[in-house]
Amino acid sequence: AEDTGVRVELAEEDDGKKSSIALRLWVEDQKKLKGKYKDSGAIEFTFDLDTEVPETVAQEMVDSGFFLEIDVKIVGKSIRDRVSLIKWRRQRSTSAHN
């Protein structure tokens, strides 16, 4: 995935079954963000792989004051990339079983 400066990782082991997973997001490279970033640490949250949209979570982070509106796209993309990878891994694992 592209280096967006925003890192998103699983905050728990993926059992491959639950649709709701815990993710952890933090800024690795502030220079990649357009807005001035207030270093508030790692943000942990749950995300539903089936029903939720990464960009919506990014907007909630903006609304909560973690990021500025100008960076909502880069945060959304960072979450989307990680979610895509998790889904891809799950699909691959399912295919391997069959």
Binding site: W26, E44, S64
Partner: peptide
């Protein structure tokens, strides 16, 4: 010392905690 801060937004819970030193730069 590393107490987490909890922020609620539209029903979602964000838990904020310090980033472990080892995770700051992995590349």
């Amino acid at each position: 010392s590393s107490a987490a801060q909890v922020v609620h937004s539209a029903g979602r819970r964000f838990i904020v905690s310090p980033v472990p030193e080892s995770r700051l730069r992995e590349q």
